[in-house]
């Protein structure tokens, strides 16, 4: 997972080692802030326009936590007939809601292959594209 380690490679082979080395610490760690259950969390990329009302745009990174309890109206990732979808879950009406008017709710039908995969706990917008090709 995402880790920034701000320590330069220093094998101690040449030169004089900086006396500050001992005091180098990891700077703020985004994992620690954004990820509640590391072994149950994965990151996906959003594709499509149906969740704009919840602030999720195409190309955003979604942090999906499988260990969270699922509450009504949570933004979740689910397996719907072999495809990962991101929707709001309406437990009472057994349907998947989009947050854009152009997309009607999807009512679960008999025979649908459906499992909730996890709760979208955070999403990340890339206001500038990544510098590095990923």
């Amino acid at each position: 997972m995402l880790k920034f380690i701000p320590i330069k490679a220093s094998a101690g082979i040449v030169g004089f080692e900086s006396p500050a080395t001992e005091y180098t610490q990891l700077s703020l760690d985004l994992d620690q802030l954004l990820i509640d259950h590391p072994s149950a969390t994965y990151i996906g990329i959003a594709q499509g326009e149906s969740m704009k009302g919840d602030g999720i745009f195409s190309g955003d990174l979604l942090i999906v936590d499988r260990a969270q309890d699922i509450k009504d109206q949570d933004v979740v990732v689910a397996n719907l007939n072999g495809v990962f979808v991101c929707k709001k879950i309406d437990k009472k009406q057994r349907c998947l809601l989009s947050s854009s008017k152009r997309f009607p709710p999807y009512f679960l039908r008999e025979g649908d292959d459906f499992q909730i995969e996890g709760v979208v706990t955070r999403s990340i917008r890339l206001h500038r594209p990544f510098k590095k090709a990923i």
């Binding site: 996906g44 959003a46 594709q47 499509g48 969740m51 999720i56 979604l62 999906v64 990962f84 979808v85």
Partner: peptide, 10 residues
């Protein structure tokens, strides 16, 4: 791998 993270349809 970042380039391989799963795609999620919105």
């Amino acid at each position: 791998q970042w380039r391989d993270i799963p795609k999620i349809k919105c």
